[in-house]
């Protein structure tokens, strides 16, 4: 195999692993955000958020 193969494979592998990491962080944030929104819609809020609503 040529040197170009090893160089390309290295950069592709590095990019793939970093892409998976970025995707995981992004999807995790989306899932947590959605979960918090669902809880809020069900009336379940943090005490600080609830006390902020009081006049």
């Amino acid at each position: 195999m040529s040197h170009a193969f090893y160089v390309t494979a290295s950069y592709v592998a590095a990019f793939a692993v970093v892409a998976v990491l970025v995707l995981w962080v992004w999807l995790d944030h989306r899932a947590r955000h959605r979960e918090l929104a669902q809880l809020e819609a069900a009336g379940i809020r943090r005490r600080s958020a609830r006390s902020g609503e009081k006049p």
Binding site: V25, D28, H29, R32, H33, L36, L39, R46
Partner: peptide
């Protein structure tokens, strides 16, 4: 910092539940 933000939100959700 973004993963830390996710972890804080995960813990908040667990406490709320």
């Amino acid at each position: 910092v973004l993963a830390m933000r996710n972890e804080i939100l995960r813990r908040r959700i667990a406490v709320l539940r």
